[in-house]
Amino acid sequence: MDMSALYQRRTAEFLKEIRPYAHYAFQGASMAAIVFFLLFSIAYRLFLQWVTPEFPWQPLCAAVLFLALASGRVRTYLQEADTLFLLPQERGMSIYLQTAMRRALLFQLAVTIAAWLLVWPLYGRMTQADGIVFVVLLAVLLLLKWALLNGKWTELQLQEPGTRRGFILLRWLFAALASYALMALKLPYGILTAGAGAILYLAVLRLPHKYTVHWTLLIEMERRHKASIYRLLNWFVDVPQVQGKARSIPLPGLLRRMIPFRQRSSYHYLYTLVWLRSELLGITVRLAVVGIILIVWIQNDWAAAIVYALFGLFAALQLSDLKRYYREHIWHRIYPIPEGMLKHSTGAVRFRIHLAILLLMAVPLCFSLPNPLWAAGLLLLGVAVSWLYHRFR
């Protein structure tokens, strides 16, 4: 069996599996990511103009590098059935696992390079370093990342859970020490300290007893990795693979009184409960909370208005998913309710929820903009667009 081809095939199958959800997640997050990048670039540029050598910039730079060096995953795509079909080829699994390590190393080296590019403007300004220092420190960081990723892989093969926890702590401590030494000490001493620590760390990795392939742990870690990706995608689109906990949220008394016990309010009641008891509740609430936090944090008038509009748009797009629930249900043809009432009621419920989100985000917007009337005008514009969208979409 070609183990390298098997790994490539499983990678392609996983990407094909998440592609539909990643497409919707990208649509929901792309504009927010662009806005965040622009705002962060402006804030970082202003920070570089303001910062002085008295500012504790060394711990800040070390913290960014520490996150890049200490983190990292190795995707193996191992499955439960592999303990039956691949276990007899355990000695030949080295090719499969080496392919996984190479893929993880390339990705993690890219993350390390990105972290160093982020830190360099501040480091270069504070130390007046030139391009040679940039290249030397980048090479050192890449070697450190290689050592730490080998440490991560060794942890996954250790036999004793207690030993594994100790080596995880050792990896974090070494990453923190190396990051701080490179940023706080003068160049030769920082490199020597980090290099000596790396040699000692790699030597310690050879001491504990290890499995050739720790099947149970690798399969469990792969299951967790896959679940974490689906949970991330579930922030933007309802993912069936995420088995959320069943929620029994009683309809609040105020909402119950607002929905008359009449035939024409049947779908209003149904879809309000659907929103309360599905993943849409968590998605819309998170969007509203993040939008409010960004509006409060941003000091620029135009940026706050753009964030308000974008998060209002994201909330509307997420609420549009409400119409897919019970759309093809057979009971719609049995209920003694006019058929056209379903679309009208679904749009009305979506509009009311969206209106509440727009009102909540408009509260901090009144304090962010110099004139509260501007916030009121933006709110009225958002309400009008929301009514049209949920009425005809």
Rank of each mutant, 00 (worst) to 15 (best):
M1Y: 07
Q8I: 00
R10T: 06
E17A: 14
I18A: 03
Q27G: 07
Q27K: 14
G28N: 10
F37T: 14
T52E: 15
E54N: 14
F55D: 10
F55M: 10
P59R: 04
C61H: 04
A63Q: 01
L65F: 02
L67K: 10
V74M: 10
E80K: 07
F85E: 11
R91A: 11
R91Q: 13
T112G: 08
L117S: 14
G124Q: 15
M126P: 01
Q128P: 04
A129P: 02
V136M: 06
L148G: 08
W153G: 02
S179F: 03
Y180A: 10
L185Y: 05
A198N: 09
V204G: 00
V213C: 00
L217A: 02
R224G: 10
K226M: 08
L233M: 04
L233H: 06
F236S: 04
D238E: 15
V242P: 00
G244T: 13
K245F: 12
A246I: 12
R256N: 13
R264M: 06
S266L: 15
Y267W: 13
W275H: 06
L281M: 09
L281K: 08
A303M: 13
L310P: 00
F311W: 12
L317H: 05
R327Y: 07
P336V: 14
S345L: 05
T346V: 15
G347F: 10
R350F: 03
F351R: 06
H354G: 07
F367W: 12
N371T: 08
P372F: 06
W374L: 07
A376E: 05
L380Q: 04
L380C: 09
L380N: 04
L388P: 01
R393S: 11
